[in-house]
Amino acid sequence: MAGIWIIAETREQAFELLGAGRSLAPGMGAALTAVVAAGSASPEECIARGADEVLLLAELSPGEPYGAHLPVLEQEARAASPGVILFSAAARGKELAARLAARLGAGLCSACTALSFDKGSGSVLMERIAYGGAAIQKLTSSAAPVVVTVPPRSFAPAEAADGRQGRTRELPAPPPSAVKIVDRKPREKAAKDIAEARVIVCAGRGFDKKEDLALARELADALGGELGATRPLTEELHWLPEDLCIGLSGVQVKPELYVGLGVSGQVQHMTGVRGARVVCAVNKDENAPIFALSDFGIVGNLYEVVPKIIEAMRK
């Protein structure tokens, strides 16, 4: 049976994809191959976590983008004909996965949240979110290869075990890419990882200006929680770092409590909150969709209501 490939840019991605790959391998009776970027996971680490084979991507010169690996990946994939190719759904991985799928004439399940192999039909079963979060799409593939991208943190990382054996091979350097990186700007990272937060106060467009977010922060502090945001605040207004964006194109959260302040409750945002135990909201529009998607909420101006909530909590 054709093998399972994972293609990873970072160490975390490699471990998580190996975890996803290992869940498929026994059913498919397939060997697991880890294709990893130089300087990410070491071959020993990958082998300890279940890789039967490690293919090391060549180190790129500073001006070459990650996508430069495409021709080498295409060539190797044609030679080895894997049945499944897994990528992490991070920006570079998503682009590379789609380009590789196009070159191989393969199907691609983007942002796959559940993955299994059905022995009876010999097909790969996949699930993903569609219509912004309003629907779950179930896909099957019986043609090889099928390319799959998985959102970060959707699968448990593979555990290391002693005494595992595997081969390692270095891949050739790719030809120069037409796209060149001429500059890099590192970005401001959120201090805390909200995917793991127990309480999240989420700020939405209902805030008039950046300085006013202090109010959301104050409530978060009072609740012992973290600040999160809707996409307009992180990607359009740039008031907060992007890794605080909750939802379809951001982080999936699972706190004990989520409080949405000035958040309308569009499905693309709320789908990221589906794992929260308690959801509540403050919104001045009584018809805002968030109310139906909350356990309880106050219809009112957040600028008046939030200070009162903080005060009442102190009592």
Binding site: V273, R274, F291, A292, D295, F296, G297, I298, V299
Partner: peptide, 9 residues
Amino acid sequence: LERTGEKLA
């Protein structure tokens, strides 16, 4: 995604 949706004043 629906929840109980209790609205308060």
